[in-house]
Design a binder for these strands. Structure first.
Lengths: 109, 109
DNA sequence: AGGTTAATTAACGCTTTGTGGAAATAAAGA
DNA sequence: TCTTTATTTCCACAAAGCGTTAATTAACCT
């Protein structure tokens, strides 16, 4: 049961995000089958998979010489729970901002 | 409209995550009022706020000498949309894993 | 103007992260 | 057993991230 910040850290890299999307779309796959998610070496891919594994986002099962990676739905559910539990807060935040900002000029970039 | 990986990167730091939770709970606040989210210096806090701002997670409005930060609900909605749109995939992924794994031994850490 | 408050930018060091190439591990197959 | 296939670990190294203190900017208040 890892921290949400760990989950977000794992998903903050484009290659790892692509791996996750791939596993969602096409289901479990061997490390080698994932090699085309990004133009990186096998060692680099292997390390990304390790990060995802240690963050609890994927599971690894061994089949002969191949390592099969699959998405761990619980990790996605953890994000879903967080966002859902706080929906009322960010909606409330929107209301408060409306009230507060009424006559202040925004200045973001 | 930033990339989701940028959003996740911004939320992957414990201090920034705490800032976001604080803004959800208590609404918009000045930078100085957020100083107790973590035992860090004002410049460090300021840079975290800049990261959140550039990731589109918070907005900054100027009120006299103070900078008021507020959560940008769209950023939370972006996460919610992603997780929701892919729910069927991670649920499917769970099914496929069940089928595949039937007689393979898991080996994660 | 001079002093205080609020926040940011500048400058520097340290730690972490990401990468590729080479070597190591492990199982398969000839 | 020797070679091939699949993947990971080890070894530098460059880039990014985070923290601090010092300096700067900007607005308020006598």
């Amino acid at each position: 049961m890892t921290d949400l910040t760990t989950t977000f850290a794992a998903l903050s890299d484009a290659t790892r995000f692509a791996i996750v999307e791939r596993l969602m779309r096409d289901g479990a796959q061997a490390a080698g089958d994932l090699s085309d998610v990004a133009p990186i070496s096998a060692p680099a891919l292997s390390r990304h998979l390790k990060v995802l594994r240690e963050a609890g986002i994927v599971t690894q099962t061994v089949d002969r010489q191949r390592r099969i990676y699959a998405l761990r739905p619980e990790s996605m559910m953890a994000i879903d729970d967080w966002i859902t539990n706080r929906r009322k807060f960010w909606e409330a935040s929107l209301d408060r901002l409306d009230a507060l900002v009424a006559n202040l000029e925004p200045d973001n970039d």
